[in-house]
Deep mutational scan, measured.
Amino acid sequence: SELMNSSKLIRMLEEDGWRLVRVTGSAHHFKHPKKPGLVTVPHPKKDLPIGTVKSIQKSAGL
């Protein structure tokens, strides 16, 4: 199965306009000026399962 580095996923979010608002432990929480909701990324993780990545991307509207 495909894995993604959390840094790469965070870069994709930031390029889309998401900004880090809070860190709780290894959970990084992002908000967007125009899009609704809060997106949480486990970080640092070298090997996020593709299912997790897809669900984060979906929440972020990517």
Rank of each mutant, 00 (worst) to 15 (best):
S26T: 12
A27F: 15
R19S: 09
V53T: 05
P49S: 15
K54S: 08
G51Y: 09
I10K: 02
R22A: 12
R22Q: 11
G17W: 02
E15C: 10
K34E: 10
G51E: 15
T24D: 11
K8W: 14
R19Q: 11
V39D: 00
T40F: 07
F30P: 00
G25K: 13
M12G: 04
S6K: 02
D47T: 11
M4H: 09
S59M: 14
V21R: 05
K58E: 15
H29G: 07
G37M: 05
S7Q: 10
V21K: 06
G61L: 05
D47I: 15
S6V: 03
K31Y: 08
L13W: 01
M4C: 09
K54E: 14
K31G: 08
L48C: 02
L62G: 03
H43R: 03
Q57T: 13
N5P: 14
Q57W: 14
G25I: 13
Q57K: 12
D16M: 05
I50P: 13
V41I: 06
L3Y: 13
R11K: 13
I50D: 15
P36F: 08
H32F: 01
L48T: 02
T40K: 13
L20R: 10
G17P: 00
I56Y: 01
R11M: 12
K35C: 03
I50M: 11
H32G: 00
K35Y: 02
K31Q: 13
K8V: 15
S6T: 04
F30Q: 00
S59D: 14
G61Y: 04
H28Y: 07
E2A: 08
G61R: 05
T40Y: 14
L62K: 03
N5V: 10
R11Y: 11
V41H: 01
V53H: 03
E2M: 11
H32Q: 01
E2R: 04
V41Y: 01
T24K: 08
L38P: 04
S26F: 12
S1Y: 04
R19H: 11
N5Q: 11
L3N: 12
S7L: 11
V53W: 07
V39H: 01
A60P: 02
G37W: 04
G51V: 10
V23S: 08
E14A: 09
E15H: 09
L48N: 01
N5T: 14
G25F: 14
H29T: 11
P42V: 04
N5Y: 06
H29Y: 10
L9E: 01
F30G: 00
I56L: 03
K46H: 14
R22I: 11
L62R: 02
K58D: 14
K8M: 15
N5E: 14
K46T: 11
L62A: 03
E2Q: 11
S59H: 11
R11F: 08
K31H: 12
T52K: 07
K58M: 10
S26V: 12
K46S: 15
Q57E: 08
T24I: 09
G25P: 15
V21D: 07
P33C: 08
H28T: 05
S26M: 12
S7G: 12
K45S: 07
P49R: 06
S26Q: 14
Q57N: 05
P49Y: 05
V53A: 04
A60N: 01
D16G: 05
P44A: 04
S6G: 04
S6A: 05
V39A: 04
